[in-house]
Amino acid sequence: MTESNVPVIELRHVDKHFGTLHVLKDISLSVNRGEVVVIIGPSGSGKSTLCRTVNRLETIDSGEILIEGVPIPPEGKKLAAMRRQIGMVFQSFNLFAHMTILENVVAAPRSILKQNKKDARAEALRLLERVGVADQKDKVPAQLSGGQQQRAAIARALAMHPKAMLFDEPTSALDPEMIGEVLSVMTELAGEGMTMLIVTHEMNFARRVADRVIFMDGGAIVEENTPEEFFAHPQSQRAKDFLSSISEH
């Protein structure tokens, strides 16, 4: 099969406007199987929007987005079926507030994949164990720390056995002491070969874990390089300015 040569996520000439604001300018990028791509850039550069277009939480004006070579369906059951193959982790965790942690992880496999109760539960417990919050399984999200909630949210996404994972600034809403625990779960995931597209401000994490770094500014991809090259020798002035502005503190 030639399937493995097809990128898991591919964007071709994607454009998007918010009113008069051109938020995504002719974006083309691809994420191959097992690859970890990190998008960085100043706030307002369009990186979150880009991440959210991949599972159509944001629509696009023109261009194409393909998952394993298949264009994203515009609506309905086909769109839902595509979305469940792409896990997503949000800045604000978004765990279901009325469910316990275990119910959060079990809900989608049970009602969408029609897994039986016992299997779904066993799998959920295994995943919660893996991200280190199994002991919190019977609490509701509001009783957990942000770091615990985010790890549970990662477990919830993994329970659908996604082909790729999107991370939209997963540590930006966390207290500093909790960032590490979330990043280490993500590092582990990358080590296991998960295909990941990550929007983050954590430069050290990007340097360590990324296969490729994409630098965005003003809605466009300005640079795309290996982390070693990008952080050592940024090509554009904008990337240089950005890197020096964040290394100042």
Partner: peptide
């Protein structure tokens, strides 16, 4: 209900 709840459910494949 916060909008993130809806987005999280959609991203998991809820109709």
């Amino acid at each position: 209900v916060p909008k993130g709840q809806r987005e999280a459910a959609l991203s998991l494949g809820f109709g």
